[in-house]
Nucleic acid binder design. Structure first.
Length: 756
RNA sequence: GCCCGAGUGGCGGAAUGGCAGACGCGGGGGACUCAAAAUCCCUUGUUCGCAAGGACGUGUGGGUUCGAGUCCCACCUCGGGCACCA
């Protein structure tokens, strides 16, 4: 009996309701799709090449954010995006396009490792099982993926190239003149020829070790002893992007402490301007672009040097035009000048305040509701504009990590400075004449922020008085500062360099070894992949989550046989110590779209011809990149920022022809889903209505609570002029129904349905 | 507080400044059937009217225009992001 006949025999109303007939028909077709390679996509070059099939067909590269292979399988957010891309991909094929559409797995990371620790099973085993399970689920959904192009970030043949790209980054520097990455050898050549000078000292007089240290200062990937986010509860350091606003870890919700530690960093700040400016080339929503701009946080202003007993005290301000109104200075409690500036009379109070600020660091610092605290150091600074002696205070509303860690306070024009001045009785001098206020600031209720003619703002060589334009006053002030050597125009960013090492097991090892001096050396590309060593001790060292003074300890540290190696890196065989950190989960997802293009290439991470074909700019000045990228908005400042950064480095070094990885981005939003139960089992639907009393109903029945919301129709957002069938809730509803009854024993949690 | 975005039938949602509500869901009526399901046909913004036909309609109030869902100003509501960033 064929499966169609058996399906017909089972064609009872109950079977139809449960979808058994539909599933058996689907299974026949899915077998045939596999057997005939229906969805296999030809490349112009390499092992998957079929130039005749490529010729004359415009290309479309359609991409989903690839899933983490969770043990629970796909969650219901996944089919929302996958369905949309599948429909779009099928439509594009039917209209003559050569469509690249496949699916991979972002499989390194903490959940697999934590599960392994609990069960004693190696994460590679559970990861493989989970991937097999999800592949079966994807197949059952009938998605038209090219199965030959599927990858997993944990496959050594994949992470070999992740390590290779790391080496490209490590062996590069960002030319400050062009803001582009160049090979480190070219920096050496510039030092040799004297075209460029080292940051300190003379290149020709440097020892080999000094030269190595100098070069490390320039690299795009570098080891730094700087304040990082140490999370004892996770046993690892984490990136800024992975710390929540209340100072806890994004994953696990453990306390995070700022500690100076020696860690790998990526110089993403060197790309800050391009990461902002190139957003203009992208077809992304304003919301996501705004999030990236805000995260990068570019502020244009000036640095100004005030005279102080500890030397020039430099501040950053976006309002240099208000310098005449600076009536006091405020330093972050951690500022290095504090010790020198504190007078004996104030020493006790300053020390107490610094201790208190240190103690309340993360969470508490958020909690106190903008009540201004601070302490006078006893010292004064000299305002370069008018020679005024202004008191220097310390306060925790000034952050060491932004600007210079010191501010000039202009209470007449800044709310925070105004509040601080009022709290501590510091002078407030008006430097603008608002139309509706007196110049007597004791009558003011708040700071005045806006255009108004300047007053009290002139000295013997600069006259701002009477000017009404803030922009003009800024320009005149900066010109004056430069002319008199008191400062210059400056741009600062909130973005910090990307902390790139983790003290975990389940990640990509670094292709780096250290010599006896502790200097890092890159391994040659021929040594790749650096395989993650096998062990049964993949559990990280666990700490008391509140023990800020504990020290991270990578599981790889314990593997002595692996850690120490003999190698000849150009100056004879020597003994080296391997780097025992692993890369963060984001590493593998920074370039996976490129590997889909050429998944079996052993000679390079992607053949240039294939990259040009699928990703290359379609017109002069265009960014190039993936034609449609669908995924969750929660990656707006994590994956999407990191991937753009790596892609730009690869672009600068000539490895890719596209300057951006993802040309069009669509965030599918969340599913408004309702799970409900009746005599036939538990079902889920893509509708749900919130009643005014806060309960949820579906078709008049109460349902389990909530589950996000669904944005505008996918149809409209994806391709208003290329509609094939209906997208959105109705289609989604059919797909979700086709998945059959849910496991009623596993209640839906909001995280199951929020985000993809 | 600051920065984005969105408000159109019962629902999802269409509309280069030019017949608002395409397409679909849901609803109503009919065909087929012993009856249902599926399928097909008609109908479906509100309102007045027996009808022909008319009036009113895109969050609110103004404005520009021969003409505004669309452009401008002010406001209201909802959603999202950031939050002592100098």
């Amino acid at each position: 009996m064929t499966s169609t006949e058996s399906a017909a025999a089972n064609d009872t109303p109950a079977h139809r309701y449960s979808g058994a007939l539909a599933q058996s028909i689907e299974a026949d077709w899915q077998d045939r799709w596999d057997a005939e390679g229906t969805f296999e996509t030809p490349n112009p070059a390499g092992p998957l090449a079929d130039p005749a099939a490529v010729a004359g067909r415009p290309k479309k590269f359609i991409l989903d954010m690839f899933p983490y292979p969770s043990g629970a399988g796909l969650h219901m957010g996944h089919p929302l995006g996958f369905t949309a891309t599948d429909i779009y991909a099928r439509y594009q094929r039917m209209t003559g396009h050569n469509v690249l559409y496949t699916m991979g797995f972002d499989a390194f990371g903490l959940p697999a490792e934590q599960y392994a620790v609990q069960t004693g099973q190696h994460p590679a085993i559970t990861t493989d099982q989970n991937i097999a399970n999800i592949r079966a689920q994807l197949r059952r959904l009938g998605l038209s993926h090219d199965p030959r192009r599927s990858i997993s970030t944990t496959d050594p043949e994949y992470y070999r190239w992740t390590q290779w790209i790391f080496l490209q980054v490590f062996n590069s520097w960002c030319d400050p003149d062009t803001k582009k990455a160049r090979p480190i050898d070219e920096l050496v050549a510039e030092f040799d020829s004297g075209v460029r000078q080292p940051t300190s000292g003379s290149w020709s007089a440097m020892s080999p070790a000094e030269r190595r240290a100098e070069l490390d200062e320039w690299r795009l990937a570098y080891v730094s002893d700087a304040p990082v986010n140490w999370c004892p509860g996770l046993g690892t350091v984490v990136a800024n992007e992975e710390v929540t606003a209340d100072g806890r870890s994004d994953r696990g919700n453990f306390p995070v402490f700022k500690r100076n530690m020696r860690q790998w960093m990526m110089r993403i700040t060197a790309y800050a301007d391009r990461l902002i400016d190139d957003l203009d080339l992208l077809d992304w929503t304003d919301a996501i672009k705004a999030m990236q701009r805000n995260w990068i946080g570019r502020s244009e202003g000036a640095t100004v040097h005030f005279g102080s007993a500890a030397g020039p005290l430099t501040v950053f301000t976006t309002r240099p035009d208000t310098l005449f109104g600076a009536t006091f200075m405020v330093l972050a409690p951690e500022h290095p000048f504090v010790d020198t500036l504190t007078t004996p009379e104030q020493a006790h109070a300053v020390a107490a305040y610094r201790r208190a600020a240190e103690a309340k660091k993360d969470i508490d610092r958020q909690d106190d509701t903008r009540e201004k605290t601070g302490v006078f150091t006893g010292s004064y600074a000299t305002n370069p504009m008018n020679g005024a002696q202004v008191p220097i205070w310390i306060a925790d509303y000034v952050l060491m990590g932004y600007g210079t860690g010191a501010i000039m306070a202009v209470p007449c024009g800044d709310e925070r400075d105004f509040a601080f001045a009022r709290t501590f009785g510091l002078p407030i001098v008006a430097i603008q004449q608002p139309a509706d206020r007196s110049l007597d600031t004791s009558t003011w209720d708040d700071a005045y922020v806006g255009d108004a003619p300047y007053v009290n703002s002139s000295n013997e060589s600069l006259a701002l008085d009477g000017i009404t334009s803030i922009a003009e006053a800024k320009r005149l002030t900066i010109d004056w500062l430069v002319a008199h050597g008191h400062g210059e125009g400056t741009t600062t960013y909130k973005l910090r360099d990307w902390l790139f090492s983790r003290q975990r097991y389940w990640g990509e090892p670094f292709p780096i070894v250290y010599d006896e001096d502790g200097s890092p050396h890159s391994l040659p590309a021929s040594a790749l992949p650096v395989l993650l060593p096998d062990t049964d001790q993949f559990s990280p060292r666990t700490f008391d989550p509140d023990d800020a003074m504990s020290n991270p300890e990578s599981p790889l540290d314990r593997l002595g046989d692996w850690v120490w190696i003999e190698a000849d890196l150009g100056d004879g065989p020597r003994r080296y110590r391997r780097d025992t950190n692993v890369m963060p989960q984001w590493a593998g997802s920074c370039w996976y779209e490129l590997r889909y293009l050429d998944p079996t290439n052993d000679d390079s991470f992607v053949d240039p011809e294939n990259e040009r074909y699928w990703m290359g700019p379609q017109s002069e000045g265009a960014s190039g990149g993936v034609d449609l990228y669908v995924g969750g908005v929660e990656h707006a400042v994590l994956h999407l920022l990191y991937a753009r950064f790596w892609h730009k480095v690869l672009f600068d070094l000539g490895h890719v022809s596209s300057c951006e990885p993802f040309h069009k981005l669509f965030n599918q939003g969340y599913i408004l889903a309702a799970a409900y139960q009746d005599e036939r089992g538990m079902y889920v639907d893509a509708f749900g209505v919130e009643e005014s009393n806060g309960t949820y109903t579906f078709e008049g029945r109460p349902v389990t609570r909530e589950y996000g919301k669904m944005g505008k129709s996918l149809k409209n957002a994806i391709a208003p002029d290329e509609v094939c069938g209906q997208y959105g809730a109705d289609t989604l509803r059919l797909y979700l129904m086709s998945m059959g009854p849910l496991d009623a024993s596993r209640p839906w949690e909001s995280k199951d349905v929020v985000g993809v």
